[in-house]
Amino acid sequence: MPSFIPWSAVTLLVITSLGLLVSREWRWSLALLAGQYFAAFWLTYTRWPLTMAATQLVTGWMAAAMLGMSLIHTSAGSAEESSWPQGSGFRLFAAGLVLIAVFASAPNIAAWQPGIGLPLVTGAFILIALGLLHLGMTAHPLQIILGLLTLLLGFVTIFSAIENSILVAGLLSTVNLSLALTGCYLLALKTQETQA
């Protein structure tokens, strides 16, 4: 695989993760989530067989579709945060700091397990760090689930370099889908409560 493909995937991951952090419109968020899974697919494909990498991609897209189906008739996905910090500028600033830290530490982390490859480590840790930042900035169920899916995608990306068991890939897909289902359930509860 040409070396520019993994780095292009990392660039796409930066754009989609930042977009997810800033966006509060659920349609954009889910489109960015789908893009994030696509970019991660190219990174995992460098280490996993096509079928296993594609399973993660399809699982991610299914998760996005499930969340979309449950949000389509509700307004629960577009709620603004009620607590500080609320502004996009602050989120971008915080994300910028996190990205600098990730790019600075990625070569050291890559040295833990020789042969993993810098693009894969960088991409995975961008997802993990921005996923954690996402979780720390919201209390909204949809945003929480998006943050957790981003974080888990980061770990799946890094697992692809050190583990290639079909059972693990299957269980990770199950966890992703269960998380999306949990999100749908929490959003449905929120809608019921709003209607009541």
Binding site: L171, T174, V175, S178, L179, T182, Y185
Partner: peptide, 12 residues
């Protein structure tokens, strides 16, 4: 992984 799935079943 299985404990995580069990945790998600706890939500409902």
């Amino acid at each position: 992984l299985l404990i995580e799935i069990a945790i998600l079943v706890c939500v409902p």
